[in-house]
């Protein structure tokens, strides 16, 4: 787990090729290591986009307009949850609770936790992420 965590944190995903290497180090079968990788939501099997948008979809955020926000976010990015834009700029993921429920709805965009997110604020943040890139 600790090794996988480091790989994930360093690369943003866990490449398939890492599994036999890790299995060798910890003296487990490849199947066992693959089992751990596939169990946890954080370990991505594919590289994510340059900016990852993780939107909370749990109850507190639902109660605070999270569903309408989720529709807006999907339209703005042209993505469904779990997808990455073709140019590799954005990945949209659902999360279930960021522990920021007193400031619902919440999201993590890039590395930053955002509270009381509105469609307008979301558009601003995404626009500035796009500007930085150009």
């Amino acid at each position: 787990m600790v090794i996988l965590r480091r790989v994930q944190d360093a690369l943003g995903w866990v490449p398939r090729g890492a599994v036999p290497v890790i299995a060798d180090i910890v003296n487990l079968s490849r199947a066992e290591v693959h089992g751990v990788v596939s169990f946890y939501h954080d370990f991505r099997p594919e590289p994510p986009g340059r900016t990852v948008v993780r939107l909370c979809r749990a109850e507190s955020c639902q109660a605070a307009g999270g569903e309408a926000l989720a529709d807006h976010v999907q339209n703005r990015l042209g993505l469904k949850f779990g997808q990455t834009t073709r140019d590799g700029s954005f990945t949209l993921e659902a999360v279930y609770c960021l522990g920021n429920c007193a400031c619902s709805p919440a999201a993590v965009i890039g590395d930053e936790l955002i509270g009381r997110l509105t469609p307008d604020r979301f558009d601003q943040i995404i626009a500035s992420a796009e500007r930085v890139r150009r």
């Binding site: 787990m1 600790v2 965590r5 910890v26 751990v36 169990f39 946890y40 370990f43």
Partner: peptide
């Protein structure tokens, strides 16, 4: 690593041991 079930105490122990 993002698994709600790991808040269950025995699942947490498994996870601490490096397993699913």
């Amino acid at each position: 690593a993002g698994a709600y079930i790991c808040g269950e105490e025995t699942a947490m122990l498994e996870s601490l041991e490096g397993k699913r």
